[in-house]
Amino acid sequence: MSAGASVRKEIRIRREAADVWARVEDPGAIEDWFPGIVASTVDGNTRVITLGSGLVMPEEIITSDPIQRRFQYRITAPIFRNHLGTIDVIDLGDDTSLVVYSTDAEPRTMALVIGAATAGALAELRNQMEPEEN
């Protein structure tokens, strides 16, 4: 029985991938679209987020690749034996994009909890990025 777990959430957004990526790649703006994260600070490759419960989580930004449109970070708080968060923004070629948010974590319970929260983040990202219907 694995001690870790992997959770994947995805959402299709009616917005060009470049626009979505511009929001995702800004590490200091995560609290604007990730419900449950109430504050963040960025210093070089280190981001510190504050959660709605008051928990503070340090993170290391690993990848911010505008060509692949991939953002990856690792939570370095002691409770995690491993963590990797990956956000891929994929151009679907029809002025829409697919955003895939993957969470790999040990302990596995944290993968489930964070993965569930990323679903809310993707929904909020779509709310903010899609043009309003006329």
């Binding site: 419900p35 449950g36 959660l51 709605g52 419960s53 928990l55 319970t109 909890v113 929260a117 809310g120």
Partner: peptide
């Protein structure tokens, strides 16, 4: 109960 993001009313 496991709610580090404080997403649920009953935990807040």
């Amino acid at each position: 109960f496991l709610d580090p993001f404080g997403r649920f009313t009953e935990n807040r």
